[in-house]
Nucleic acid binder design. Structure first.
Length: 769
DNA sequence: CAGTGAGCGAGCTTCCGCTTGACTT
């Protein structure tokens, strides 16, 4: 029996640490928190000074039982959870849940997983810091109170099953308000003037592109300017050279990894986390949920060696970065390769790409600055006081740029500055072409998942472990959608001076095309409007920052946690009660007009099942008619005509085999109903205009497919079938489906035996687990 | 992923942060 039990949070970490410690140590993991507030009720006893009602999390019962058993026989239990608020609380919950004896329990912490760090920690044990634990309890209880008291208000005033919370509601607010900014944005256009010159000198002939720093508001001004250029001489007035520097970005945190993987690899926030987890579990990278930019001394040393070997000593510059984020708790290192000497790893393509990104970022962070020379050339116009300007950039020493450069969100405006041709002051230039192109001011950009994470981190809302789940929550609740939206065609004017004449053209371009951006839904808009009106304090962008300050005071022992909660709760609960009493139902209702047939009002609003159109009042004797909005429609934009269209369905399109065929719109798109069977329309079909002939075609097509659907059935077992599906053959057992493995030795679907099927099902079930 | 096609109305929904598992003897 082991003398010592060490408990950490993650099993991968446990495995690593066990190797460093001797035989006397057994290392286990708690898999994060083991206890939480009761899930069924509020879980906070308000009358009894907000005493939390904790219970062992259902899926941790086994873990707790096992740890308890080992702890009983151990001489000493070492609680080695992370050294931050949550980690301290996990240790305390472990003490409580495992009923540990304080005399034989020691609390230790380390920030990096190296043998020396761990042995040092073992040499310096301490007791649990109850102030820090209290700060966590305050955080937990506050979040529960906010979430579980506001959400039911939403169920009554807006729609059932909705949710509100300190983090998610602010995330939604960001997206809603950004959309409003875009909507109210006043676009202005101006003319940007770009000239192309030819320069001939001792070095040869070259093209020089230059731009006028001033933009013209009116086309007439641009035209006047171009006219003054017709007889003008162009001479280089000045050449200015300035040295410049570029520094590498710090190593990855969770947030910056998500941003860069999104920009450079096109990964969603959750995909990044899944792949990072795989790399972590196979020991290839350090822990992926971190807010720290720190690298261990060991890592710095290896980085230096790797850079020297690969690029030479001049490329080395060791640095330790400091975090900018105030909310950072820095319980871990930055995200880096475990073994920096490995530039690549084995794995699937996603793992390889993410690993290489992490490797480059880490290595670059320890490399020398890039040295640049920025040149600005000013070109005089003999007929005009304005000057053209050409800018160039030369890299004198590439430094870290040899490996990696961080991307920016606004890729469009980052003009490429190239190398300028050699030239001297006073040299004259030959005008080839001058263009004045109408350009439009840009509204602020919509958030992507990754740029939302960046903003959330700036506001201090959410933690590395919650960025990805929060983003899925607000999409699951249908407050926001990640979508691709078509752009619009826009006209713009262009004036071109070639030779002695100015040519005028009207051209078109596509604008406003969006991909993978977050848009608020009707529900998101209505819920946000409601929350901002009745709970402005909670929705305030500084709410988290201000409560965090109080949590810090609790952690420092200056404040008592349940007093802080009491001060918050009293006015907050009053707010809840007042809102329940005074606020009306919020449905985002908008009157579209009157229905010409019945003369009744037509509304667009949020219903029990989402956004919909309603004809007539709910107080009328005759019940109102309802129709749900379709994808792409919104309460705000839907017109009376579009709304009335929706009531033309279901529509009879003809008869077939003596039975009527109805075209209608369902949850999953338009369909034809015939003889109680459903037939989905195809993308090109429109339920409003589909003909009887086409409907029959669809019915026959599906019948044929159904006939060919069954590839094989078995006498032994009627519940197993080999079927032909949308994506090729598959095996179906009861209601579950299993994919037929491909590759060498795999049989054709037709040749599968009953035994083969059983085996595939067995394997499929194992995989799912 | 492999199918689906509500609108009655009883009983349910909900937070943020930690962390990945898993059936027996």
């Amino acid at each position: 029996m082991a003398k010592n039990l060490v408990i950490v949070e993650s099993p991968a970490k446990a495995k690593t640490i066990e190797k460093f410690l001797g035989k006397d140590f057994i290392v286990k993991s708690s898999f994060g928190h083991v206890r939480d507030l009761s899930k069924k009720e509020l879980g906070v006893n308000i009358e009894k000074d907000f005493k939390p009602v904790y219970e062992i999390t259902p899926d941790k019962k086994k873990t707790v039982a096992e740890l308890k058993k080992i702890a009983k026989t151990a001489e000493t239990v070492w609680l080695a959870t992370d050294e931050d608020r949550e980690g301290e609380a996990i240790s305390w919950h472990l003490m409580e849940a495992l009923k540990l004896d304080e005399a034989k329990t020691k609390r230790i912490a380390f920030h990096e997983i190296t043998k020396t760090a761990i042995l040092e920690a073992i040499e310096n044990p301490r007791k649990i810091d109850y102030h820090l634990v209290d700060a966590q309890q305050a955080r937990r209880v506050l979040d529960r109170l906010v979430g579980f008291e506001i959400s039911p208000v939403l169920w009554r005033k807006v729609k059932p099953s909705l949710s509100a919370g300190r983090v998610q509601s602010v995330a939604v607010r960001l997206i809603v308000e950004r959309e409003e900014e875009i909507k109210t944005f006043k676009q202005v256009s101006s003319f940007r003037v770009i000239a192309k010159f030819e320069i001939k000198n001792d070095f040869g002939t070259a093209i020089l592109n230059a731009e006028l720093p001033k933009r013209f508001k009116e086309r007439s001004e641009a035209l006047d300017f171009l006219k003054t250029c017709v007889p003008a001489d162009f001479v280089i007035g000045s050449i200015e050279k300035k040295p410049g520097k570029k520094s590498p970005a710090p190593p990855f945190t969770t947030s910056t990894l998500q941003q860069e993987a999104s920009r450079k690899l096109g990964f969603s926030v959750s995909k990044t986390m899944v792949v990072a987890q795989q790399l972590y579990e196979s020991g290839k990278i350090t822990y992926m949920r971190t807010d720290s930019v720190n690298l261990s001394k060991l890592a710095l040393g290896v980085a230096k060696k790797v850079i020297t070997n690969n690029y030479g000593e001049t490329y080395v510059k060791t640095r330790q970065f400091k975090t900018k984020s105030k909310s950072a708790q820095e319980a871990h290192e930055a995200i880096r390769p475990t073994y920096l000497e490995n530039q690549t790893v084995d794995g699937d393509p996603s793992q390889k790409r993410l690993y290489e990104l992490i490797w480059k970022r880490t290595i670059a962070s320890q490399m020398a600055e890039a040295v640049l020379e920025r040149t600005t050339v000013s070109i005089d116009i003999s007929t005009n006081p304005l000057k053209f300007v050409a800018k160039g950039e030369v890299i004198k020493f590439d430094g870290f740029l040899k490996v990696y450069l961080e991307s920016t969100d606004d890729g469009e405006n980052g003009e490429q500055k190239g190398v300028l041709p050699p030239m001297k002051k006073g040299e004259s230039l030959e005008r080839k072409e001058i263009n004045a192109i109408e350009r439009f001011s840009q509204p602020p950009p919509r958030y992507t998942e990754a740029s939302l994470v960046k903003k959330m981190e700036e506001l201090g809302i959410g933690r590395p472990s919650t960025y990805a789940p929060t983003i899925s929550t607000i999409q699951k609740r249908e407050y926001v959608v990640k979508e691709e939206r078509e752009g619009k065609i826009r006209e713009f004017h262009q004036l071109t001076l070639v030779g002695d004449t100015v040519k005028e053209e009207t051209k078109t371009e596509k604008t406003g095309y969006e991909k993978g951006k977050l848009f608020p839904t009707d529900i998101g808009n209505v819920v946000n409007g409601f929350l901002v009106e009745y709970f402005p304090n909670i929705l305030d962008y500084n709410f988290t920052a201000s409560v965090e300050k109080e949590f810090d005071e609790i952690a420092d022992g200056q404040k008592v946690w349940n007093k802080m909660i009491k001060e918050f709760y009293k006015p907050f609960h009053k707010q809840i009660e007042e809102t329940l009493e005074t606020s009306k139902k919020h449905s985002g209702e908008r009157l579209l007009g009157t229905d010409p047939k019945s003369g009744k009002n037509v509304y667009a609003r949020i219903g029990r099942y989402g956004a919909m159109i309603q004809i007539g009042e709910s107080t009328d004797e005759e019940k109102p008619k309802f129709a749900g909005l379709r994808k792409g429609q919104s309460i705000e934009e839907v017109t009376l005509e579009e709304a009335l269209e929706m009531f033309k369905l279901p529509r009879e399109v003809g008869t077939f085999e003596d039975k009527p065929m109805l075209a209608a719109l369902g949850r999953f798109g338009p369909y034809i109903k015939h003889d109680n069977k459903f037939y989905s329309l195809e993308k090109t079909d429109d339920p409003m205009s589909i003909t009887g002939e086409r409907a029959i075609e669809l019915i026959e097509k599906k019948r044929k497919a159904l006939k060919e659907r069954i590839i094989k059935q078995f006498k032994e077992d009627a519940s197993i079938e080999v079927l032909n599906g949308r994506y090729g053959p598959f095996i179906k057992q009861d209601k579950k489906n299993y994919r037929i493995p491909k590759g060498k030795g795999a049989k054709e679907a037709k040749e599968l035996t009953y035994e083969d099927c059983l085996e595939i099902i067995k394997k499929g079930q194992k995989k799912k687990k």
